[in-house]
Structures are given as C-alpha cells and as structure tokens.
Design a protein around this nucleic acid. Structure first.
Length: 499
RNA sequence: GCCCCCAUCGUCUAGAGGCCCAGGACGUGGCCCUCUCAAGGCCAAAACAGGGGUUCGAAUCCCCUUGGGGGCACCA
C-alpha cells in the first residue's frame, strides 16, 4: 500500500486537454516527475479526454510543449508509448465498460434511466428544501434483471456507483491524514455516461490500477470525491496508491483563487498563471520550476534556491504543506534573476537572442556575447534584454535633447564638455575602461564638474538613454567609430538646443 | 443550504510541548558600494485569528467561534 522511500514510484500526470496549461498543473506534474526520478521509477503522462464536449483542439500539444519546456520528460505517454498503451482515455472506452459491468455483477453499481431533466429538477427541489443535493436512488431499486432487459431494449442509461447506505469510510490522504465521511453524504455518482464513456471517477481509478500507479498526486479539488474514489478502489479489492492532495493556488492577495479578471490583471502587470505566457514573457523554466516547487513544499528553514537535479534529490512528500498558497509573482522575478545570473554567458546569450530578434534587432553573435554579461545582472526577464540592451544593436540612437544636458549645467556647458570628451576619445587608439576613464575623469576635474555630470552626458549621447550598463564597458562594445558618431550627433543636438 | 479541507509577518514558509518575547525568503524602508541602473553587502519594521481547555510549561495537543478555500454536473 505505501511504498518506502527507496522503492521506485510510478506517478502519473493526468490532465484533460480542455484549455491552457496552468501553473497549478505545472507544479503537480513537477512533483510527479521529481518523485519518479528520485526513486528511479516512472513518470507517466495520461490524457483524460473523456469529456468530448469540453475538448479543445491544440490543448494536448500545448500541454506537451509546456511540460517539455519545464524539463519534465515522461517515460510513458500518448506520444512516446509504453507498456500500458493507449495513454489517451478516449481510446480505452471498452476497458472502463468492462470494469463498470464487473461492478454491476458484484452488486456495487446499477443502471440508471433517469433523464437529465429529472435530475435537474430533483436538484432544484433539494436546494429549495435546503437539503444536500444527491441522487435519490430511484433506479437503485429497480430489479437488476429488469434493468438488464431495458438496457438490452436500447433504453438510454448510465451506470451509477452504489454507495453503501450505512456506515462511513475513512480515506487516507498523505498530506492531511485520515478523512472520514459518512456514506450517506456520498452521492451515487455516475460512472458511465449515456455516451458510453466513463467519468473521471471510474476512468482514473481503473487506469491508475492498470498502470500500476503507486502515488496519486493531484489537486485538492479532488478531496470532496476522494472517499468515493476509495470506495471504488476497495470495491475491486485493488491496492490503494498513496494519495497526495496538493493545496490550491490563491490569487496574490490570498483572498480567493485566480478568477478570469485576476488573470487578466496579472497579464497587464507582466505576469500570468499560464505556462506559455510565462515563457513568452521571458521567464526561465528553471525559475518557474524553483518558484512553483516552493509553493506548498519546503526543504528546510533556509534553503530556497534549487536546480532541477537538486530538487530531484531533496524533494519529499513529507514536507508538503496542506494549506492554500497565494501566488507571489515578485518572488518569481527574484528566482528568475537568480537563475539568470547563474547561467553560463553563451547559454544566456542564446536564450536572449530570440527576444531581441523578435523585437526587430539584427543580432550578431559576437556582439551579443559581449553584451550578455552586462545584461546578466540587470534584467529580470529575458524580454528585458530588449529594453535594457537594444541600443547595442542599433546603428543610430535618438536621445531626447533635454536629457543630454548635464545636471545643473546649461546646454552650452554640456556641449562644450561633450566636445572636449570627443577630442579625448578621438585620440585614443581604442575606447575601453583602461584607456578612457582616467582622461575623462581628469577632464571633469578641469571643467569643474563632477565625473557623474560628465558621464551622464556621455551616457545619454552614446546609449540614447539616461540609464544604461556601465559607460566604459558599454562604449568598448559599441566601438570607437560609432561612439564618436553618436557623440557628434549629441553635440549637434545640444548646440541646436542652445538656440 | 449541505459536505470536506485549511489557519505563523502583506506573501511563501521554518517550527512536530520547553531550543521561540518565533527563524529564513520575497516585497517594503534605510545605509554601504557606485559614472546611471542593476547586482552585492549590512540594518530595520513586520506574524503565532479569537476564546476555552489539557499541561509545571503550548505557535505546537483537544474543543468551540471566526475567517479563508474547495466541492455539491451524464466536467475534470
């Protein structure tokens, strides 16, 4: 029933392809992956597509892309196959039917012929009487032989699980402990729909058993139907997996879960709960993994930085936290910075490149390689490279003339300072920190201004903005020719400004 | 309304009866470094929801209240 830390775990991530991949799904898949890798077991991807109405084209593909992006490779799945194929539930219809019929034979399930209209009305009446909304068991009382006849005659029907009328059940959640529920509070849930396809409650239990899943890791939205699932598993006398219900994610305020509107707000602020958005925004998969791993799980009282291999080593089911966690996007920024700074320069450069190109810059690798170290400690997301370092890849730069004026200086004084700096720089064989800084500092002194005043004029002239990476390193990369060109242009702007 | 779950700084969390007048991280404020912006370093403010028990002793165990969350589909 429970496996000791050493035994290989078989875990599964079982999403339904009904929409975009959510952060919460990513975290569940991550934990599945970590546990499997840590124990030398297998991580399985199973597509739960039994709801044909809610299916969204492309969702499965998006899902697969997102999981791969996070670095979560699965050992068995619809695309890679495996010993328990198929891994798409819509292709396993007969299997579920077989087990549903077995349940009927055992007296643990029954055919139900109630129409959806009757069920809706029933629910409404129960609500009005402030009673729990449950199936009233009408078809439970039909003679099984008679029911078989009606089914044979082609009457539309579903199959319902027969929950015992008396007693209760104790289900064990690994995170929360025992959860005991009275049977009368558990509905006779539908197992097989009129279309012959199963509902999650049956399909997941059957597949988890057949696929020899040892740990079911899923969201806590399954807690209410958890006792039902245990009933089903026990009805078949199957071994129970370790049940692990993860906490839900709340919106950043901690009040309620992310609504459509909250999601839109987040995107406006440069955040999102969708994996593909996060990727587009320039977050590193390493950071998303590190960040989401820590929502609902902790290692100790001080360690927070983890790489994937470290997580594989340190992850533990025992340190899962049952309480809901509010999403903290600023912490994602923090982790993104940490992981970014840890990357080798060529690696970071390769990741930045697509963002620069998408912004329309022509990027030559040699320059990029020299620019990247300057960007590395300044950008929060890969996309920031465009705003912070775009000017490295432009021929011309267009500073705001006002910004060229030095602090507490007149345009004329600024122009003169720029002219003097131009002469100094023009006489240098090449411009870099060693050759340029000393002479320019002396110039500032001679002009009776601070180095900061002079540098800010040059910065704006050379980069087109008043905030940039360190001046001399920046000029070294840009090169003498273009630096002088931009400086000349700035001097002209200042002279015109003077009027 | 009914069922279930949860409850430590604004947020993520450490804490499994004395090590805690509660530790770390993000964020915030200040200082240092400094050619701007960052990065980095240092410091600060900031929490055991409330009430009853149990105990020599409770953030830690029990109960109640309150608050929050999830679910109540021929969706997952």
């Amino acid at each position: 029933m429970t496996s000791s830390p050493g035994t290989p775990a078989r875990t599964r991530f079982a999403p339904s392809p009904t929409g975009r991949t959510h952060l919460g799904s990513g975290r569940t898949a991550l934990y599945d992956f970590l546990l499997a890798r840590q124990t030398g077991g297998q991580f399985i991807l199973r597509i739960e597509d039994t709801d044909r109405k809610r299916l969204e084209p492309g969702a499965e593909e998006e899902l697969i892309n997102n999981l791969r992006w996070l670095g979560l490779e699965w050992d068995e799945g619809p695309d890679v196959g495996g010993p328990h194929s198929p891994y798409r539930q819509s292709e396993r219809k007969d299997i579920y039917l077989h087990y549903a019929h077995q349940l009927i034979q055992m007296g643990r399930a029954y055919y139900c012929f109630c129409t959806q209209a009757r069920l809706a009305q029933l629910r409404q009446e129960q609500m009005k009487r402030k009673e729990p909304t449950h199936y009233d068991g009408l078809c439970r009382r039909i003679d099984p032989g008679q029911a078989e006849q009606r089914v044979a005659a082609g009457e539309p029907h579903v199959i319902r699980f027969k929950v015992p009328e008396e007693g209760g059940i104790t289900a064990h959640d690994h995170v929360r402990g025992d959860i005991t529920v009275e049977n009368r509070n558990i509905d006779d849930y539908i197992l097989i729909k009129t279309d012959g396809l199963p509902v999650y409650h049956l399909a997941a239990m059957v597949d988890d058993h057949l696929m020899e899943i040892t740990h079911v890791i899923r969201g806590s939205e399954w807690l209410p139907t958890f006792p039902l699932h245990v009933h089903i598993v026990r009805a078949f006398s199957w071994d129970e997996p370790v049940w692990v219900h993860l906490s839900v994610f709340l919106k950043p305020s901690g009040k309620g879960k992310m609504s459509k509107r909250d999601t839109a707000e987040a995107i406006k602020d440069g955040f999102s709960i969708y994996l593909s958005d996060l990727r587009k925004m320039g977050y590193l998969p390493e950071a998303v993994v590190n960040w989401s791993a820590l929502m609902g799980w902790s290692y100790d009282d001080r360690t927070e930085f983890f790489t994937m291999p470290e997580l594989v080593e340190k992850f533990s089911l025992e340190r899962l936290n049952p309480s809901p966690a509010a999403i903290n996007f600023s912490k994602l920024d923090h982790f993104n910075g940490l992981h970014m700074r840890r990357l080798e320069v060529p690696d970071l450069a390769a990741r930045i490149k697509p963002y620069l190109m998408k912004a329309g810059y022509e990027v030559d690798d040699e320059t990029l390689l020299r620019v990247t170290p300057l960007l590395q400690e300044r950008i929060v997301t890969l996309d920031d490279a465009v705003a912070v370092g775009g000017f490295f890849f432009e021929r011309e730069v267009t500073p705001n003339p006002e910004d060229l004026v030095g602090n507490h200086m007149t345009p004329a004084e600024s122009a003169e300072a720029a002219r003097r700096a131009y002469q100094i720089l023009a006489d240098l064989p090449e411009i870099d920190q060693e050759t340029a800084e000393g002479p320019l500092r002396s110039l500032a002194e001679e002009l009776g201004i601070s180095a900061g005043q002079l540098f800010s004029i040059l910065r704006t002239a050379v980069t087109g903005r008043n905030v940039s990476p360190p001046l001399f390193q920046t000029m070294a990369i840009i090169g003498k020719e273009i630096v002088l060109e931009r400086l000349a242009n700035a001097i002209e702007l200042l002279e015109n400004l003077n009027g």
